[in-house]
């Protein structure tokens, strides 16, 4: 009996060691590309060249790459654009989607389920398969961007904040998640509100909205990350330098510095720092958000 227990202990210890070993291997795999970005951003041209290559930069106070990266792109404008777009998209979509989710979950109206079905369909539509009409629509908005009243002649709303904000104020996924969330509350909540004389709108603002902190936090993180990181729509919808977002600026930067990997890595580092800070401040919300929205909970 005693020896069997000892055997089990040894086996468990072996399994635990193996567990940590595999986890550490994945830690290394996760970190190597990131560490290489950081190290390279501090290296001189000589240190990344084939001849005198070294793994570590000779000094972590060599900021010339950052200066160069900063000089070549108007980063304040790009960060300003990305920030402005992200804030408006997050605030707007949170409000509109939670209102719609509330109505789909708690109110009765004709055609409700059919309308909701069409929203579920939208979750399968990928941006690439509808980008062409979206582009044409933005381009042919009448009386905007040099267009005449029939929507031709100019560039319409392309290359404007509107094109990068308005389409994203709604979203199938956001409405769906809010509707699922508001469906979990008991019916008695609406009834109590009605007895107290609240209409549906007041019920939403006074009862449901204050209870929505978790879903709103999750949606904030998800929407902010995807908007900040989006590269596809800015690539298609914008042309001028003053409309560039951070992601687009980084991609453009790459085109101009194929040989200077140290500059490129410095620029990459500049663009990811805000996201990393937000992640480490709110990592719980990130992980819980994925866990609770990925699956019905």
């Amino acid at each position: 009996m005693e020896s069997k227990k000892m055997g089990m202990g040894a086996k468990n210890r072996l399994l635990m060691t193996l567990t940590y070993l595999i986890l550490c291997v994945w830690v290394v795999i996760t970190l190597v590309p990131i560490i290489m970005v950081v190290l390279t951003a501090f290296k001189t041209d000589g240190e990344i060249s084939m001849a005198n290559f070294r793994w570590l930069p000779s000094s972590f106070t060599y900021f010339d790459n950052f200066k160069e990266a900063w000089r070549m792109v108007n980063w304040p404008v790009c960060f300003g654009n990305s920030f402005f777009i992200t804030v408006l998209v997050v605030v707007g979509s949170l409000f509109f989607n939670s209102l719609a989710g509330y109505a789909f979950a708690r109110l009765r109206f004709r055609g409700r389920d059919l309308l909701f079905m069409t929203i579920l369909l939208g979750m399968m539509v990928s941006p690439q398969s509808i980008i062409i009409p979206q582009y044409v629509m933005m381009r042919s908005v009448p009386l905007a961007g040099g267009n005449n009243m029939f929507g031709s002649g100019g560039t319409g709303l392309l290359d404007s904040y509107v094109s990068l904000i308005v389409p994203f104020l709604s979203g199938a996924f956001g409405i769906f998640l809010c509707r699922q969330f508001y469906s979990t509350f008991p019916k008695s909540l609406d009834e109590a509100a009605r007895i107290d004389g609240c209409g549906p709108v007041r019920t939403y603002f006074y009862i449901f909205l204050p209870l929505s902190k978790t879903i709103l936090a999750t949606l904030t993180i998800m929407k902010a990350t995807s908007t900040w990181n989006d590269f596809f729509y800015p690539l298609i919808f914008t042309q001028s330098e003053r409309m560039r977002t951070v992601q687009l600026a980084l991609q453009m930067f790459k085109g101009s510095t194929t040989t200077h990997f140290n500059w490129l890595m410095a620029a990459t580092l500049i663009t990811v720092i805000p996201m990393v800070i937000v992640y480490f401040l709110a990592q719980k919300q990130f992980v819980q958000g994925i866990a609770s929205t990925g699956m019905k909970n």
């Binding site: 509109f96 989607n97 209102l99 719609a100 509330y102 109505a103 789909f104 109110l107 009765r108 109206f109 409700r112 309308l115 069409t118 929203i119 369909l121 939208g122 539509v125 509808i130 979206q134 629509m137 308005v166 389409p167 104020l169 709604s170 979203g171 199938a172 409405i175 209409g199 549906p200 709108v201 939403y204």
Partner: peptide, 18 residues
Amino acid sequence: IGYLLIAPSYLIYLLFVL
């Protein structure tokens, strides 16, 4: 009111996705 509450979200969705 139901239609009104879904209107902003649904119209944008209709216009830019469907």
